[in-house]
Simulated assay, not measured.
Amino acid sequence: MSRDDAREDTTVRRCLASGERAEKETLVRFVLAPDGRVVPDLAERLPGRGAWVSAWREAVDQVVANGLFARGFKTRALADADLGDTVERLLATRVMDTLSLARRAGEAVTGYEKCRAMLARGDAVLLHARDGSMDGLKKLAGVAGEQAIRLFDSTELGAPFGRGEAVHVALTPGGLADRIKTECSRLAGFRSLAVGGKEGR
């Protein structure tokens, strides 16, 4: 096996819904709890056999409706009908937890002027509240290029900063920003607005 083949073997998995192989960062891993219930393993750290599904609500719903988890785990598997909602909630929590880390590390700011200044300095990442002003989004998105992400309400964005709400959040380039972009890409499959303010599935 070549080095490239070995790398692909560790970073690529087959989606239980489509049967197609894809990068792990575009999929969601599920495992079986001791009671036989299917649970998401977003950090990919839980023990046991994993089943992978594309990070789209429709894919998760399809696997649940057609009982495909039993095929993936090769045993009886109990999956809640609202499993897609659970994945969405957990992904959103992971983004907010990472945003809190970025704030404490001085890598995330909120407020129009602070965000504009950070975006003007380089390839920063912009998060804009779904219920925020489109005028403000257009002005900042012009500075951020294609990095504007609209997946959260202002109350969600405000929480990591100890505020009731926040409309604009900017992050400096780096590991935490990359982690947030990856998780937001997965979350976009479960929420109605995606990167750049475009409608998701």
Results as ranks from 00 to 15, higher is better:
Arg94Lys: 14
Thr110Lys: 13
Ala55Arg: 06
Glu107Met: 09
Gly111Cys: 08
Glu113Ser: 13
Ala81Cys: 10
Ala79Lys: 03
Ala81Glu: 14
Leu119Lys: 04
Leu126Asn: 02
Ala70Ile: 07
Leu101Val: 14
Gly67Ser: 06
Thr75Lys: 09
Gln62Met: 07
Leu68Asn: 03
Thr75Leu: 10
Ala124Met: 04
Leu90Cys: 03
Gly111Arg: 11
Ala70Gly: 07
Leu119Phe: 04
Val64Asp: 04
Leu127Trp: 00
Val63Met: 06
Arg104Gln: 15
Gly111Ala: 10
Arg71Ile: 08
Asp85Asn: 12
Met118Arg: 13
Met118Asp: 05
Phe69Ala: 00
Arg103Ser: 14
Ser54Thr: 09
Ala120Pro: 11
Lys114Thr: 09
Gly106Met: 12
Gly122Ala: 09
Val63Gln: 04
Arg121Met: 08
Met118Trp: 06
Cys115Glu: 06
Asp97Ile: 02
Asn66His: 12
Glu113Lys: 15
Ser54Lys: 09
Gly111His: 07
Ala120Tyr: 03
Arg121Lys: 13
Lys74Tyr: 05
Leu101Gly: 12
Gly72Lys: 02
Leu127Cys: 04
Leu127Ser: 00
Ala70Lys: 10
Asn66Pro: 01
Ala81Lys: 14
Tyr112Met: 10
Thr86Asp: 05
Gly67Lys: 02
Glu113Trp: 10
Asp82Glu: 12
Ala51Lys: 06
Ala92Ile: 09
Leu91Ile: 02
Ser100His: 14
Thr75Gln: 12
Trp52Asn: 01
Asp123Ile: 07
Lys114Cys: 09
Leu126His: 00
Glu58Ser: 12
Lys114Glu: 14
Arg89Leu: 13
Leu91Thr: 01
Asp61Gln: 15
Gly67Asp: 06
Met118Ala: 12
Val125Glu: 03
Arg94Ala: 15
Leu101Arg: 15
Arg76Val: 09
Val87Asn: 03
Ser100Cys: 11
Val87Trp: 01
Val53Tyr: 00
Asp80Tyr: 02
Phe69Lys: 00
Ala81Ser: 14
Ala81Asn: 13
Ala59Glu: 01
Cys115Pro: 01
Ala51Ile: 10
Ala92Arg: 10
Ala108Asp: 05
Asp123Trp: 03
Val125Ile: 11
Thr75Ala: 12
Glu88Lys: 11
Asn66Met: 10
Leu119Pro: 10
Gln62Ala: 08
Arg76Phe: 09
Ala59Gln: 00
Ala102Gln: 02
Asp61Ala: 15
Leu83Pro: 01
Ala55Gln: 05
Leu99Ile: 05
